[in-house]
Amino acid sequence: MKDNKLHLNKSAGHQVPEGYFDKVEDAIWDQANLSSKITTPGFEVPSNYFESFDAKILRKVQTQEFANPKITPFWTRQTTFYAAGIAATIILLLGLFLNSKDSLDFNDLETVSIESYLSEEEFTDQDLAALTTEDYLLFDGFNETNIPDATIENYLIEHSSLDDLEYISEP
């Protein structure tokens, strides 16, 4: 038991570890013996060493300061993150704007879309006639086309009936 190892001073209630007084006596005795023999380690320094030390060390720290001047880096980790963020945003916005087309032309329409539009909408003859004003649909163009008589003859034999011939024969 811990308490049994302690000496009890009944008058004040203070306690000391067991064997403390023997140990402290030894410690005091050893210390006294030693200090009676030796008080200093016996080392010496060259004359004027401490007097000249200040100038030597000041010269050294100043040389090192100039050799390694304090530099505040522009590209700290924080500024790099900010710059990268801004650059990424600009690239993203530019990409969006440059890739988007402001106007569509006829080639952008799909054939299916045109077909469905034509089938759903109603056109009058005037609407269709308006298309013929285009230069490439002028009748002059037909005059320039040379179709051989034999081709016309063959076409009429294959595709026409007697009824059709009635119309042709009319003046």
């Binding site: 023999k37 030796i38 200093t40 380690p41 016996g42 080392f43 010496e44 320094v45």
Partner: peptide, 14 residues
């Protein structure tokens, strides 16, 4: 060492 002026006992202590 020229910068050690200790006697025999100081040397023993070291």
């Amino acid at each position: 060492d020229v910068y050690f002026e200790g006697d025999e006992i100081q040397l023993k202590l070291q």
